[in-house]
Design a protein around this nucleic acid. Structure first.
Lengths: 223, 223
DNA sequence: CGGAAATCTGACCAATCGATCAAGATTTTT
DNA sequence: AAAAATCTTGATCGATTGGTCAGATTTCCG
């Protein structure tokens, strides 16, 4: 299906009330879908529940998004786009300690601010990524290759201990996203509804310290 | 429902063919259920598909397990019991470096040997653990409290750097289980169907080294 | 052997699901 | 103001689901 294969988008008006209203309601539907997909997965989510949370009749939801699959794809795409630029500071000329600490801190922040999209993505991966097409083996793989190359250049320059760059990235992903994906477990174990922003900062500092020291780096005093 | 609330179990025979056959078929059903739950989650899993993989009619499956919920509970219980004793070496008198390295190594091994149950559990947690009752906030919480106490005793004895014990455990869980739960992502990014046992050993060594150094410990030469 | 208990199974059911449709309401364009 | 385009909605459909049930078959044991 083409991107603009929906009525109204190519109407003659130059971004009038119609388009603004349409964008607004689509955002509301996507947010509702996000939370339902996160709670129940693709199979468990029902369009009726999504419609209910978006406060529109189910038939109207299918006017804006033809199929549940299309809705899910849009949610996934939104998540992925959000994640594309969190490691921009990982560049050859950067200071490894600072760049990694910044990356870890940013990922923990994201886990705190947007845990729901993270859970949708995690659920998709756990079930073998049946709806992600070739994204993992093409775009994400290229992204990892390029970041691994940067880390390898840091190692070659003697800036840090010799570690496998890709598995280091997996470890950072796991250690940070666990605070979004497995929040229910962490909350239950710690015995508190949710962590405070202060506690998230403490977590970011500890994860940074362990990984940086593990890489033979000295954690920066301030991030 | 009581544990032995099924026909045949309390028959007069002393562990004859009947009981052995029942145990065998129940195991076959549970294995089938495990894989289906892992691939589709609780909602997405169908009793028809579980029955198909167990090679029995659906009605027969419901003879051994009354409801899908009961089947799911048994799968979850099995997983949890498997995990209960993986950290037995974490004791006050143990050497922190050796104990942690052993724990991490054992968890990576488990991720390699039994990724499917791990995914069922992870899926349950991601969706807020709706079927786990109070397990997380009671038994698991107590388990974590006791292990955290051990780690705190290590710190008090000056054996390792001061870190938050619980978040250290979360980090170990995340870094190890990611190789089971997110295997599809790791495979796609690395461009290989699956890691070799040798590669799992490399992963275990690297995760150990980073975490141990991160805790101010010296990784043991051999685990 | 013979009957009781346990096991197995095809057929079936009520509920729920994603999706469709026709018809009406509203807004925009001419 | 008429026509066209867009939006909204209740009703409904075919497909799938978890679970049931009556009856056939097998196993067990005196």
């Amino acid at each position: 299906m083409a991107v603009n294969d929906q009525p109204g988008v190519d109407a003659g008006n130059g971004g009038g009330v119609r388009q603004r209203s349409r964008a607004s309601i689509e955002r509301r539907i996507l947010e509702a879908a996000e939370s339902v997909f996160a709670e129940a997965g693709f199979n468990g989510a029902t369009t009726a529940e999504i419609a209910r949370r978006a406060a529109i009749p189910k038939a109207n939801l299918h006017y804006y998004f033809n199929t549940k699959e299309e809705l899910y794809q849009q949610v996934l795409t939104g998540i992925i786009n959000t994640w594309l630029h969190t490691a921009d500071e990982i560049t050859p000329d950067a200071d490894p300690a600072h760049a990694l600490a910044h990356y870890i801190s940013a990922k923990i922040e994201l886990a705190r601010e947007q845990p729901i999209p993270s859970r949708v993505f995690a659920n998709e991966i756990i079930h073998g990524a049946p709806h992600l097409g070739s994204y993992l083996s093409t775009e994400l793989r290229d992204w990892v290759d390029s970041k691994a190359k940067v880390i390898r250049s840091w190692i070659a320059a003697g800036k840090m201990r010799e570690v496998d760059p890709k598995h280091l990235l997996f470890m950072i992903w796991a250690s940070t996203q666990t605070y979004a994906d497995f929040a229910s477990q962490i909350s239950a174990v710690l015995g508190k509804e949710q962590l405070t922003p202060q506690e998230y900062k403490t977590v970011a500092r500890q994860v940074s310290e362990i990984i940086l020291r593990g890489c033979g780096l000295t954690p920066p005093a301030q991030i």
